[in-house]
């Protein structure tokens, strides 16, 4: 079984419940927007899905691998773009990608070939020799997405990847990742609090105060109403 499945996932920070019985699934080739206001539990969910920490309640399956029972096989199938910038700014883009490849046990010619292919895919081939510090925000994000795809993951997780980007870069990256999902059968989970990053053909999960408020195709969730209005109504938060 491919794609991403989250079953009855709950998590507490001490007494505070961060996630409660979260369930959803994303199929290969689908772009799923995880829409939620700040503090909804998106980062906790990403922390659990990337196994930065674990919880006893619930289960996460990545490309058919149970993250709790078979973490290494599951992690090998995930590409992650964190909200925080994680490039080594003093290294070139190519070196950053090589370092990541090595962390996945990929070295030598295979790493070089994959790096070229990933950069090419994101339109970053010409910037391979530039230091990450010299790139603008949009290109840094592209480099991070290229890096996350280097090991051909089945599932791509992006945690608010457009934070801090200008409108043009944001639009470019949103479009690009949508195309990636459609063209390469990649399962994409895109966390955001911005409704304009969600397209009508996407799958949608609305998360609020640790609970899933709605899940399904965007058109099914909105029933013809503007997404922003539906989101505001469900969460009682100010969306942009």
């Amino acid at each position: 079984m491919n794609g991403l499945r989250v079953h009855n996932l709950s998590h507490h920070y001490g007494q505070k419940q961060a996630l409660k019985d979260v369930c959803f699934s994303v199929e290969p080739g689908e772009f799923c927007a995880l829409l939620g206001p700040n503090g909804a539990g998106k980062s906790t969910l990403f922390g659990l899905m990337s196994r930065l920490f674990t919880t006893d309640r619930g289960r996460i399956e990545i490309a058919g691998f149970d993250l709790g029972k078979n973490p290494r096989a599951a992690l090998a199938q995930i590409g992650i773009v964190f909200q925080q910038q994680t490039l080594d700014l003093d290294l070139t883009v190519r070196r950053n990608l090589h370092y990541f490849a090595a962390l996945h046990g990929i070295g030598g010619r295979d790493a070089a070939r994959r790096t070229d292919a990933a950069l090419d895919r994101l339109g970053m081939a010409e910037r391979a020799q530039e230091r990450a510090r010299d790139l603008n925000g949009g290109h840094r994000r592209r480099a991070e997405i290229a890096r996350a795809l280097l090991h051909d993951p089945a599932v791509l997780l992006l945690d608010e990847p457009t934070v801090g980007l200008d409108a043009a870069s944001r639009n470019g990256i949103v479009t690009h990742v949508h195309e990636l999902a459609a063209e390469s059968d990649l399962t994409v989970l895109w966390a955001t609090h911005l409704t304009d990053e969600v397209w009508t053909r996407d799958r949608l999960v609305i998360l609020d105060r640790g609970q899933v408020r709605a899940e399904g195709q965007v058109s099914d969730v909105t029933c013809g109403r503007p997404l922003k209005e539906v989101f505001l109504q469900m969460t009682g938060e100010e969306a942009t």
Partner: peptide, 18 residues
């Protein structure tokens, strides 16, 4: 704090080895 530790921690290699 800067996030690059996350990169290390999400590698499929055993964490003790990393």
């Amino acid at each position: 704090e800067m996030g690059s530790m996350r990169l290390l921690m999400t590698s499929p290699l055993p964490r003790w080895w990393l």
